[in-house]
């Protein structure tokens, strides 16, 4: 198998052979595969960081490059630790990209939020920063019902996590860092809170039954 891509500066990244075998067996092929893999991860990491660059504010290219390289290095470690789990369901390169992308995105979000406080205890009520335009009037009934449901049917933990993630738009991995929780656990709380709100809103007639509502919400 030959894979062809290009790294961030347009240099061709090519590798002929079986990635997993080359990466697993010590020798010159492994060195070559490692070198190509690192280039591939740099390209993926740089693509992710540049796509999110505006969230970093006015930082120089040195900061961008530092994040790109750190994420690629972290991804290399993570990928090699999971090499045996590659099942060949996708191209190896696509499988590899996701490690660099995850680490790059996490680094960027952490950096973008590092000087911002997160106060969950301020999120016991839905913050008042909604719409003012007349055009929202017809949606106001549902919006009021949602606000009331958040106050009454969710646990305090569900309410805080839902408002932090959806209204405050704190990234899930940043919130997980701050709370010492896992990204999975926070997303599960969010999922359960949404499901609970929907169930309640169906009971109060603000949402149609699932069978009837396809295409209406």
């Amino acid at each position: 198998m030959t894979t062809v891509g290009s790294d961030s500066v347009g240099t061709a990244v090519t590798f002929s052979g079986d990635w997993t075998r080359a990466l697993s067996v010590p020798g010159p092929d492994q060195d070559e595969a490692m070198r190509h893999l690192h280039l591939l991860l740099l390209r993926a990491s740089r693509t992710q960081v540049l796509r999110m660059r505006s969230s970093l504010g006015p930082v120089g290219s040195d900061v961008v490059e530092e994040i790109v390289h750190q994420a690629a290095d972290d991804a290399m470690m993570a990928l090699l630790g999971k090499l045996s789990s590659f099942e060949g369901r996708s191209r190896f390169t696509t499988w590899a990209y996701k490690f660099a992308v995850l680490h790059a995105a996490t680094h960027v979000r952490r950096r973008a939020w590092r000087d911002r406080d997160v106060h969950l205890d301020a999120l016991d009520v839905v913050p008042d920063r909604g719409a003012t335009s007349e055009q929202y009037a017809e949606a106001a009934d549902l919006a009021d019902a949602v606000r009331q449901a958040i106050d009454t049917v969710l646990s305090q933990h569900q309410r805080r996590i839902l408002l932090a993630l959806v209204v405050e738009e704190i990234p899930v991995d940043v919130l997980a860092d701050r709370l010492g929780a896992s990204r999975n656990a926070l997303y599960k709380t969010l999922h359960d809170a949404r499901r609970r709100l929907r169930t309640h809103l169906r009971e109060t007639g603000h949402l149609a039954d699932p069978d009837q509502q396809a295409g209406t919400t």
């Binding site: 839905v126 008042d128 920063r129 909604g130 719409a131 003012t132 929202y136 949606a139 106001a140 549902l142 919006a143 009021d144 949602v146 606000r147 958040i150 839902l162 959806v166 209204v167 969010l190 999922h191 949404r194 499901r195 709100l197 929907r198 809103l201 949402l207 699932p210 919400t217």
Partner: peptide
């Protein structure tokens, strides 16, 4: 209260 913006409402009760 000022109403929540429609896109926020949508995301709060999204079917996931």
């Amino acid at each position: 209260h000022t109403p929540l913006e429609p896109d926020v409402v949508t995301r709060l009760i999204l079917d996931t």
